[in-house]
Each structure stands twice: as C-alpha cells, then as structure tokens.
Amino acid sequence: MNDNKPPLNPHPLSEYVAWAGNRNKEPLLGVLKEKLPRSPARVLEFASGSGMHINFFAPHFGHLHFHPTDKDIEVFDNIKKLTLDHKNDNIADPAHLDLTDPETWFNSGMPNSFSAIFCINIFQVAPISIADGMMRCAAHLLDDDGILMIYGPFQVEGAFTTDSNKEFHEKLSSAGVSEWGLKDVTDLKKAAADHGLELKEQIDMPANNFTLVFGKKHP
C-alpha cells in the first residue's frame, strides 16, 4: 500500500512507475474488456514505457493485435523481453512514435489504422502541449468508429476532484520540473475538438483517476 510507495520518479523503468502500474492494471483491464473490439482488430498504445501494461492486457484479448510505441527507444528492449517472457504472440515489436513529431506517426513497420488507442499515466509528467499532437495523431490513425482512451488523474473545469489529487498536484509542482502537474480535462477536450474528436465518456476510476474515452465526431 502507500507505506511501500517508492519515491516519485516518472522514468518508465523506475520502481515508482512499476508500483503505479501494478496498482492500476486490474481496473484498467476491466475498462478495456468493456471498450475494446470483440472481433479481430489492431490496438495501439501511446507511450508504452516499460511495456508492463500492454503485456498484462494482451493475453486477455487473443483476437486483438497490440502495437506498443514510445518516443524513447531505450525502453524497447524491456518491452521485447516482457513480451518474450509472457509468451505474448499478439504483440508487435515496439515502434518509435513521438507525439511531437508527425514524421514518426506513420512508421513503416506499423499499420496506419487502428480500432483503438490507449495511453496511461502520461499527462501529469508531460506538457499539455502534447495533447494537440496526441489528438492529431489519433485522428489520423483511428478508424471512423475507433476510440482513444486516456487514463490518469486530472483536474475538471479548473478544480481538483479530491483533496488527494490536489496534494498530488502540489507534490508534482514542487519537484521543480516545468509542466509537471495535473492537467485539465477541459484542455484535452479543446485539443480533441481541434482535430475532429470529442469526449464520449468520462469514467471514474480507483485512486481518484479517470479514463477519458474520445472518438471521432460524426454529423
């Protein structure tokens, strides 16, 4: 529990990220079981980090093919090791995808259309400006009825939904790293609207987190 919580460290291979991932993977699996396609399809992960989530989810969806991506190629060996260790034959090799660099969005080794995309725990340690790239990239890569799922803690219309989220924001802000802190769902909705996407659902999750489900606007 909290007594065993490692020091805050956003590096994808850190003990803190592993602790957070182990805490949220089961609730996230529940959402994916409800939202992911029930027929064969491709699923992309933005910012896969260590690969712990995609390798935990994949065995539950034998009909789906998962594609991990990250801007940091140093994590690729870890993703591949986990995939091999878990004997997950429905996970592709990781591909380089930087949400701030459109030239990486259409990787020659990666398909150019997906039924679903998910991204876990990125915005509290990333600038809100990447929301524009994320929404633009998702708009290009998602099928017409595809969804983008974003998980993490957020402010809602300028307010913290719990005291613990306010405390977490203050802890992040005190680290002295520009742009660390809880972002606002409103800003993600604006970025989505700029690229033809809209918030379809806001799901309350354990530990005061949310799963935000975006999809393409249709007339």
Results as ranks from 00 to 15, higher is better:
108 S>G: 05
97 L>A: 02
149 M>L: 11
150 I>C: 15
72 D>G: 02
128 I>N: 11
128 I>T: 15
124 Q>S: 05
147 I>G: 01
136 R>W: 02
81 K>P: 00
137 C>T: 06
154 F>S: 04
92 A>D: 15
130 I>R: 07
151 Y>A: 11
147 I>M: 06
132 D>C: 03
79 I>W: 03
87 K>E: 11
95 A>V: 11
95 A>E: 12
158 G>N: 05
71 K>Y: 12
112 N>E: 10
79 I>M: 07
139 A>E: 09
153 P>S: 12
147 I>Y: 09
168 F>A: 04
159 A>F: 04
97 L>R: 06
127 P>V: 07
138 A>Y: 14
162 T>R: 02
113 S>T: 05
157 E>I: 04
146 G>D: 06
111 P>Y: 07
90 N>A: 13
83 T>K: 10
140 H>G: 03
123 F>S: 03
170 E>H: 07
163 D>E: 10
161 T>Q: 14
98 D>G: 12
156 V>E: 13
125 V>W: 13
129 S>Q: 10
94 P>H: 06
73 I>H: 10
100 T>W: 05
148 L>D: 15
115 S>V: 01
79 I>F: 01
97 L>I: 05
82 L>D: 00
108 S>E: 11
127 P>Y: 11
158 G>D: 07
141 L>C: 09
138 A>C: 01
114 F>D: 02
96 H>P: 00
71 K>P: 00
139 A>L: 07
122 I>Q: 15
80 K>A: 00
92 A>E: 12
93 D>P: 09
74 E>A: 01
161 T>A: 08
100 T>C: 11
165 N>V: 03
173 S>C: 15
135 M>E: 13
142 L>G: 06
117 I>V: 09
90 N>R: 12
105 W>Q: 10
88 N>R: 15
122 I>Y: 12
80 K>S: 01
129 S>D: 11
95 A>K: 15
136 R>K: 14
167 E>Y: 04
169 H>A: 12
149 M>R: 07
117 I>H: 08
118 F>W: 13
92 A>F: 08
96 H>V: 10
107 N>V: 05
168 F>P: 11
98 D>R: 15
75 V>K: 07
117 I>L: 11
149 M>N: 06
113 S>E: 09
164 S>E: 12
74 E>M: 02
76 F>N: 01
130 I>L: 08
141 L>G: 07
99 L>Y: 06
77 D>L: 02
80 K>F: 00
118 F>V: 02
69 T>P: 05
104 T>Y: 15
112 N>Q: 10
131 A>D: 09
71 K>W: 06
107 N>Y: 11
134 M>S: 14
97 L>K: 00
114 F>V: 01
105 W>R: 10
142 L>H: 06
134 M>L: 13
89 D>Q: 10
70 D>S: 00
81 K>L: 01
149 M>W: 05
163 D>W: 02
73 I>M: 09
154 F>N: 03
151 Y>R: 13
173 S>K: 15
119 C>S: 14
80 K>I: 00
134 M>E: 15
97 L>M: 10
159 A>Y: 08
172 L>K: 14
151 Y>C: 08
102 P>K: 13
91 I>N: 00
78 N>Y: 02
145 D>S: 07
106 F>S: 07
167 E>N: 15
127 P>Q: 09
91 I>R: 11
102 P>Y: 09
145 D>A: 04
82 L>F: 01
128 I>W: 12
159 A>E: 13
99 L>N: 10
85 D>M: 01
151 Y>M: 14
116 A>L: 07
136 R>G: 03
155 Q>R: 15
103 E>G: 02
87 K>Q: 09
